[in-house]
Structures are given as C-alpha cells and as structure tokens.
Design a protein around this nucleic acid. Structure first.
Lengths: 112, 112
DNA sequence: TGGATTTGTCGGTTTAAGCCGACATAATGT
DNA sequence: ACATTATGTCGGCTTAAACCGACAAATCCA
C-alpha cells in the first residue's frame, strides 16, 4: 500500500458510508450486549481491529467487516449488496449491449 | 496480520458472500463496458487489487470494495447495510434491555 | 485465424495491517 | 465516590497488502 491515493484519501461518500456502517455495527453489538473482546474472539480477530471497524476505518480488511456482519446474522445482505438484478443503470446498459470480456474497439466517436 | 485465524480461514458463509459480491461487482463493471485498469484509475487504486476484489479476496481493504460500489453508484447501499432499523434481532433485544455501556467512539482521525 | 485487448501472475520494494502486552481513559452501576 | 468494566492507545514485532514493471494466458472481434 504505497502510492495510490485511495487509502490515504478516499472519496467523501465512501468515508461517510464506512462511518455509518461502522456505527451501525457498533449499535448491533451493543444491542446484543456483548463486548468488543467477545465479538473479536468469536470471529477470530483482535479486539483492536473490531474497534477500528466500528469506527469505519477504511484500510481495515473486508473480512473483518464481513465477519462482523456474519456474527450478527447479516451476512446475506453483504452477498446481495451488488446484485445485478438490482443494478438499474447496469440493466439499462446491458439491454443495449452487454460485454463479455474484451473491450469493443471504438472506431471514432470517443466521447465519454 | 499474523495469528488470528480470521484472514487465513474465514467462516464459509463469509467467503461465499465475498465471492458473490466480487462477482457482482465484476458484472457491474462489464455492463458499464470499462476495464479493470479504468476503474482502478478512477478510484485511485491498482489494477491488481480491483481484480482481487472481483474475486472476493477476503484480506483486501474494505475501502477497495467500497470505492468500487461508489464508482457504480451503489455506495448508499453500503452505508445502509447494517441499518439498526432493519436489525430484527437487535430490535427485539433492544426493547428488553439496551446497553449503553460504551465509550462514545472517537472520530478516528483517519488512517494515518 | 490473426491481431488487439484484457486480465492474471511473477518478482521485488515499501508501507502498514494485525497481533500482543500493558497501560490510560471513559463509562457503568452500586 | 468508588470499584468495575469496557474501550482506546502506545510500542514493538511479524507478515503481507498494495504498488510497479513486465510477461503470459485468456478473450474477443474483424
């Protein structure tokens, strides 16, 4: 992790979403009346990383967030998060011209 | 990242969810007719990590997944993923006895 | 088929994530 | 207030994530 600016300065909306996700994970845990150390042990991680995830740390491994969702019975939501059937814009584009792999060489009109 | 067994062997349901999420992110990208390199540049990451996320790599940073969702216009879903209002089990428990015994989380002045 | 493009992989480097132990601080409840 | 518990923080250590350049394999389209 060196030069890419993603981790050092993610888009604002990304940070917002992560902060909210973390806060909601904390709410879920408190409602279940368990401690950081307890969840950490259940999912096989350290107390520290769980606390960081609850604060929405961007560079934390995806598996930490995923395991937390799993421990609260919400992991199916993660799997369905980008369901193609619910991707409105993608569906529109797909009906026009779906792509399988290679990029279609654009002849002239290169406007984006 | 050394001894915790989370990253080395996550729960099966977690791996499944990540695989599906990654596959769906790939579908979203192909529908939009853009390459790995292009998305990578847009979100400020390397082509490699994007490819790994699309394969559901568990140890990839959360921000990579989040930024991909963002680039496809799905980042709000991530923020709402663990919405307390939709946490059925949590709601039940909360009515019984909510716990407030936690320190108010500090802002986590961004990842250093 | 052939040529162009996309994607996966390999080697090497730098940075930091995650772990641990111990301590500091904040919140709780009696 | 006090003791207790939960959470945040510090320093050090080990491992690997993310980067880069280049190459190999897969995919696509004319």
């Amino acid at each position: 992790m060196r030069r890419g600016h993603l981790l050092s300065a993610p888009p604002y909306e990304v940070e917002t979403a992560l902060k909210r996700l973390g806060a909601d994970l904390r709410t879920a845990r408190l409602r279940r009346n368990i401690t950081l150390a307890e969840v950490a042990e259940r999912i096989g991680a350290s107390r520290e990383v769980v606390g960081e995830a609850e604060r929405g740390k961007a560079s934390t491994s995806m598996v930490v967030y995923a395991a937390l969702l799993w421990s609260y019975g919400m992991v199916e939501r993660l799997g369905a998060l980008a369901d193609p059937a619910t991707d409105g814009e993608g569906l529109r584009l797909a009906t026009l011209r779906e792509r399988r792999h290679a990029r279609t060489p654009q002849p002239l009109d290169d406007d984006f």
